[in-house]
Design a protein around this nucleic acid. Structure first.
Lengths: 204, 204
DNA sequence: CGAGAATGTTGACATGAGCAACTTTTCACG
DNA sequence: CGTGAAAAGTTGCTCATGTCAACATTCTCG
C-alpha cells in the first residue's frame, strides 16, 4: 500500500493535532503541517481536499476515540448508575488526553460541518454509547422511564461543560482532580435526575 | 469625542460580531471588518493592536453582557434556589442571543489570552454573580455549606455545556425549548446537589 | 491661528490557501 | 516483463490577509 512517504495521511493528521496543540486551531496552518511531515506545501491536497477537510478528519478521528474511551471506561459488572458515571468520566478523560481533538470536534463553525456529507452522523457513535447507558439505567430503575433523549442531553451537557471548561483552563484543577470532580458532579446530577418524576423528565 | 468616522471602535466591534456570526471565527478577517465599516484596511489598527486584540475586545464585551444578563435574570423575591436556576437560564439565554460572543469568549486559544494583561480577570465579574448565588443558596440551606467554589464549577459546567451544545447546533431544540430544558436540568442538578453531604461537597 | 496628537489612508512585504502543470512512483494487465 | 494509467508528490503561480512604515487629514487646545 505505501509508496513515497510511507503513509502520509496519518502523518499529516498527527502533525495537525500536534500543531493545533501548540498554536491553536486558528493559527494552525496547512503549510506548516506539510513542513513537519517533510513534504511540499501541496502534498496534503492529495489526501485532503482542503484545510477544513483535514480538520474534519481530525474531528472524525476524535469522535471515534471518544466512543472508544467511553466504552472502555465503563467497567463491566457495575450498576447501571455507576456505568453512567464512568461513562461521563470517560468523556472528560478523553477531553483531557486529547484536548485538540475536542476543540476541533466542537468548535468548527457550522458552515464547515454542513459542507461535509459524511459528517452529519460522525458523532452518532459516541452519542449512542451514552444513550445505551441511559436506557440501561432506566431499565434498572435508576432513572425515570420515558424518552431517554432529554436525559442524555442533560448528562452530555454536564460532562461537555466540564470538558470544555477544564481544557480551556477555566477549572484550576489537575487532571486527576478534574476526573474526581466529574465523578462527584455526575453523582449529584444522577441523584437529582433519579428523583425526577417521569412526566417531569418528559418536559426536559 | 467623535471625529472622522463618528466612533469607529464600536462600529468595528459590531461588524466583527456580525462577521463572526456569518463565517465563524476562523474565517473571520480584519480586512473584511474594515470593509464593512467603510474604512481602509489599516484603520482598525488605530483602535486595536492586532486581530487578536479585536477578538479579545469582543470577548470582554461578551463577559460584561453575560454578567448583566445573569443579574437581570434573577427576579428578586424568589427563593435562593429559584434565583440559582434563573441565573443559569440567564447564562444560556445570553449564549442563545449572542452566540458569537460565547465562541470568542471561550474558544480563544490560551496563547492569545495569556498575551493580554487585562484579560485574566475579565470573566471574574460574571463568575462572581454565580458565586454570590451559590453562597446565598448555602445560607438558605438549599445547598450544603463549605467552599462554594466546587459547587459553582458544577453549576457552571452544566449551563456552559448546554450553552455550547445548543449554540453548536447539537441540541435539536428551539430557543424557548432550550431555556425550558435548562430550567429542568438545573432543578435536577440542584436537587442532587442539595442532598449532598457537606463533606462530600468538599471533595467536589 | 498653529503645533501636535489622534485618525485614517496608501503602499509594501511576508505568508498562507488553493489551482495548474509537471514529475516520479506504483500497480494492473496484457 | 513492459507499458500505460492512476496515485503521490513537486514547483510555480495568483490572490487574499496580517502587519509594518510613511504619509495625509482632522481635531484639540493654547
Amino acid at each position: 500500500m505505501p509508496y513515497h512517504h510511507g503513509n502520509l495521511r496519518k502523518a499529516l493528521l498527527d502533525a495537525a493535532v500536534a500543531l493545533i496543540g501548540e498554536v491553536g486551531p486558528r493559527a494552525f496552518t496547512l503549510r506548516e503541517v506539510a513542513r513537519r511531515a517533510g513534504v511540499s506545501h501541496n502534498a496534503p491536497y492529495r489526501h485532503f481536499a482542503s484545510k477544513d477537510d483535514l480538520l474534519l478528519a481530525v474531528a472524525a478521528e476524535g469522535f471515534d476515540r471518544l466512543a472508544a474511551v467511553m466504552r472502555e471506561a465503563m467497567a463491566p459488572g457495575r450498576s447501571s448508575r455507576e456505568q453512567l458515571e464512568l461513562c461521563g468520566c470517560g468523556y472528560v478523560d478523553f477531553a483531557l488526553r486529547w484536548p485538540q481533538h475536542l476543540v476541533v470536534m466542537f468548535d468548527l463553525p457550522a458552515v464547515v460541518r454542513e459542507r461535509c456529507d459524511a459528517s452529519p452522523r460522525v458523532g452518532e457513535n459516541a452519542f449512542q454509547v451514552l444513550l445505551d447507558c441511559i436506557t440501561a439505567a432506566q431499565q434498572s430503575g435508576d432513572l425515570p422511564t420515558g424518552d431517554p433523549q432529554p436525559l442524555a442531553w442533560t448528562a452530555w451537557s454536564l460532562v461537555h461543560g466540564i470538558a470544555k471548561l477544564a481544557t480551556g483552563g477555566n477549572l484550576p484543577l489537575t487532571a486527576e482532580a478534574t476526573l474526581a470532580f466529574t465523578r462527584t458532579a455526575a453523582q449529584a446530577l444522577l441523584g437529582g435526575l433519579g428523583r425526577t418524576a417521569p412526566e417531569t423528565a418528559q418536559t426536559l
